[in-house]
Amino acid sequence: MTPVIDLQGITKVYGSGDTEVRALDGIDLSIARGDYVAIMGASGSGKSTLMNIVGALDASTEGHYALDGISIDDLDESALSIVRNRKIGFIFQSFNLIPRTSALSNVELPLVYRGVRRKERRERAIAALASVGLADRMHHMPNELSGGQQQRVAVARALVAEPSLLLADEPTGNLDSRSTGDVLDLMGELHDQGRTIVMITHEDDVAAHAGRVVTLVDGRISEDQRNSA
């Protein structure tokens, strides 16, 4: 079976000459469908750079990346937009909901950009909000929701387009411990439903929820181990 993520020799270099910084230095990583992977590392270890490359937001300097069997090394910007829209659901540390726009409209947005019809879009967005337990909050604006609720809206938005990969960047970084628990439970449920999740974090207890922990040090993979469930 094709892995969802297949990274081979990914290198990312910023700057040149004396100021050259190798943020990633030859990353080989394969993530299978249905896996729940935490990518750990201290600041500056390259995990955010890796997240940008995996999320098709940035291109690597060297190496090959295939997402869900599709090579995305040579895609242009427009094609990358389509890949992000169809294959990846993003969950950000700072929620990144669009302000002054209702929870429902936020969740609908990926489907709007995909060109799904209004009625179907609405039904799917409502279903996604219900699955994160926010059916009663769908007409609220982001600033009327708590941090935990906003992050659950973001999860619903990431889910609604049925992506191959859920990519979470420090999803609990801005949350209190109770909301952290809620969001991590939700990620656990999604994993149980068979979704592939990649989560970037620097907290051990958050990473402990994942089935596999990849640790980065100075742009290289230093450790790759499975948690015993």
Partner: peptide
């Protein structure tokens, strides 16, 4: 700018 970033991340094309 941030809103534009979010829209692009979730798949808005340049033309959109």
């Amino acid at each position: 700018t941030r809103e534009i970033g979010i829209r692009k991340a979730i798949g808005a094309r340049k033309s959109a």
